[in-house]
Simulated scan of single mutants.
Amino acid sequence: MTTTRLGNEALAQDDDDAQEQELVIPYRRYEGQVVIRQISYYLSGEIVPAIHYSEMLYTLRTATENDLIYLHLNTPGGDFDAGLQIINNMRLSKAKVVTVLEAKAYSMGALIFLAGDEIAVHDNCQLMFHNYSGSFIGKGNEQHAQVMAVGKWFEKVMHRICEPFLSGSEIAAILKGEDIWMDSDEIRKRLQRMLPPALKRERRKADVDAAEAPDKK
């Protein structure tokens, strides 16, 4: 800058030039739109064998980061194996999966509810957790082996899915045969102890990446 002015007048001109330079935006802004596909499933009855959920399982596994999948729950529970397959596909899905409790989610339904990336609870709802039930066939030693194996399996599932929503002592009580019931107010209170949705999605993404990685030999 050239000036013949002296003193404070020249300094004032320097200040004006500096302010003009600061107003120059040092970046360019671009904007785009992403189409989000929103899908809703209603689990409004007993959880039946997994073959009946093939379309939903396929959708979960083939969804993209731009998909939003809602699972609306009003179920007494049901088939444990089918419920686990639903949960595993939820966790491996690239979509954001939101579970919505709309009335009740008992037994396996409660575990599916807790497996969502984000969880929503309506008023006047219930959750119920209890031990598994089943029947075994075969010789006595075979039945005993099955009971031991399934018991250890179920205990791991409960800890992986239900903590910290349920405490370790509560899970231990369930494994001993106690039923745990809670209403919407209690559910919302406990959800405050859960992982933030963003952190849950980050951990789930790591699971997806690990599942899709080629086997290392």
Rank of each mutant, 00 (worst) to 15 (best):
A110V: 02
A110F: 12
L111F: 10
L111S: 05
I112K: 13
I112G: 08
F113Q: 09
L114M: 09
L114K: 09
G116L: 08
D117W: 07
V121I: 14
V121C: 14
V121Y: 03
H122R: 11
D123V: 09
D123Q: 08
D123K: 12
N124K: 04
N124Q: 05
C125L: 09
C125K: 13
Q126G: 02
L127T: 01
L127P: 00
L127M: 09
M128V: 00
F129T: 05
F129C: 08
N131C: 15
Y132R: 14
S133H: 14
G134V: 05
G134L: 04
G134W: 03
G134P: 10
S135Y: 07
S135P: 01
F136D: 07
F136W: 14
F136T: 01
I137V: 03
G138Q: 06
K139T: 04
N141L: 03
N141M: 03
N141F: 04
E142P: 03
E142R: 00
E142G: 08
E142L: 03
E142Q: 12
Q143L: 00
Q143F: 03
Q143V: 00
H144Y: 01
H144Q: 08
A145W: 07
A145F: 11
Q146F: 03
Q146L: 13
Q146W: 01
M148P: 01
G151I: 02
K152N: 13
K152F: 07
K152L: 06
W153S: 11
F154G: 01
F154M: 04
E155K: 05
K156I: 04
V157M: 14
M158K: 05
H159A: 12
H159P: 01
I161N: 08
C162K: 10
C162W: 03
E163Y: 06
P164D: 05
F165R: 07
L166Q: 11
S167K: 05
G168P: 04
G168D: 05
S169N: 06
S169A: 09
E170Y: 00
A172M: 02
A172C: 07
A172G: 08
A172W: 04
A173Q: 11
A173E: 15
A173W: 03
A173Y: 03
A173I: 13
I174R: 09
L175C: 14
L175Y: 06
L175D: 08
L175Q: 10
K176M: 15
K176S: 14
K176Y: 06
K176D: 15
G177P: 10
E178G: 03
E178N: 07
E178F: 00
D179E: 15
I180D: 12
W181R: 14
M182T: 04
M182G: 12
D183F: 02
S184C: 08
S184D: 14
R188W: 01
K189R: 13
K189C: 14
K189A: 14
R190N: 12
R190W: 10
R190F: 11
L191R: 13
L191M: 15
